[in-house]
Amino acid sequence: MRNLFNRQNLVALLGIVLLYAVIQGLIVFDIMPPFYKLTLILICIYIILSTSLNLINGITGQFSIGHAGFMAVGAYISAIVTAIHHGPLLLGLLAGAIAAALAGLVVGLPTLRLNGDYLAIATLGFGEIVRIVFLNTEYVGGAAGFTLSSKITWTWAFVLMVLSVILMKNFVSSTHGRACISIRENEIAAESMGVNTTKYKVIAFTMGAFFAGLAGGIYANYMYIIQPMTFSFLKSFDILVMVVLGGLGSMTGGIVGAIVMTLASALLASVPEWRLVITAVLLIAMMLFRPTGILGTKEFSLSFLGKKGDKNATSKN
C-alpha cells in the first residue's frame, strides 16, 4: 500500500473541497441563479457518462454507441424505486446502477464476439430496444414519460460524480485496467500474453454500464420528468462526442469533453436556433485540426507537484 496522503492527493482533495465550498457558497447565499445550478448538475451527470463510456471505448478499445440505453435502465429503475415505491434516494440510485450493470452483462456476453462497426450497430440496437421497452410500458408512463419530484441537490451530484471518477480512475490504474488497455492496443497480442480478453471486455462493459446507470438515476431524480425519447441514440451520440472531443482513452479528457460540451450548450441557450449549428461547426473544426481530441490519450496530471515528495510516482502512463 503506497502512501495515500502524498502531496498530489492532498492538493487534489483540497482542490475538490474548495471547488465544492465555493459553489455551495454561491448557492447558499443565493448569488447563483438556479438556472446555472441546472448546468452544474448536468455537468456532473455528463462527466460520469463520458468517463464511463471512455472505459469501454477509450480504455478497452471497443466501439459502443448505445450508452444511452444503460442510462435509461438506470433512470427508470431508480425512478421506480424512489417515485413509485417511495424508497430512499441512495437505494434508488444503487438499484438503477446495478440494473444497468446487469443489462451491460447481458448485452456484453453475446455481442462481444462482434467487433468494430458491427459491435457499434449492435449496441445501438440494444439502446433502441431498451428505449422501446420503456416506451411500451404503461407502468412507467409509456411514451408520454414519467414525472417525479426533484430530489438531487448539487451536493449529491457532486459527491457522486467525484466518487465515480475516483473509482473508475483506480480501475484503470489497476492490473485489470492494464489488461483492458492491452486489449485496445492489440487484442491478439494481449490474448497470446494470457489476458482473458472476453472477461475483461465484459468487465469493462459491465462497469461502464453501472456508472451510466448511476448517471441515469441522478438525471431522473433531478429532471422532474423522464421520457423514452430522452434516451434515444442521439443521446448516445452526445456522450460519444464528449469522449472523443476530450480525448479517447484519457480519463481527464472525458471530463474536459463533458464540461466543454455542456457549457457550450448552456452558453448558447440564448440563441437556440444557432446552438446546434455552432456546436456542429465547432465539432467538425475540432476534429479536423485535432482529431485525437483536446487531450489525446494523455492525462492531465498534478504530478509536477509531487516530483519532490512522492517517490512512488515513477510509473507513467
Binding site: V241, L248, W274, L276, V281, L283, P291, T292
Partner: peptide, 27 residues
Amino acid sequence: PLRNASRIAALITAIGVSLFLEYGGML
C-alpha cells in the same frame, strides 16, 4: 483531411456534418 486519422474521429465528424445539415437546414 481525416482519411488517415482514426475511424472514430471521422465518425464524429460525420455526426458533426449531420447536425450541421439538420439545424443549418432548420435555420
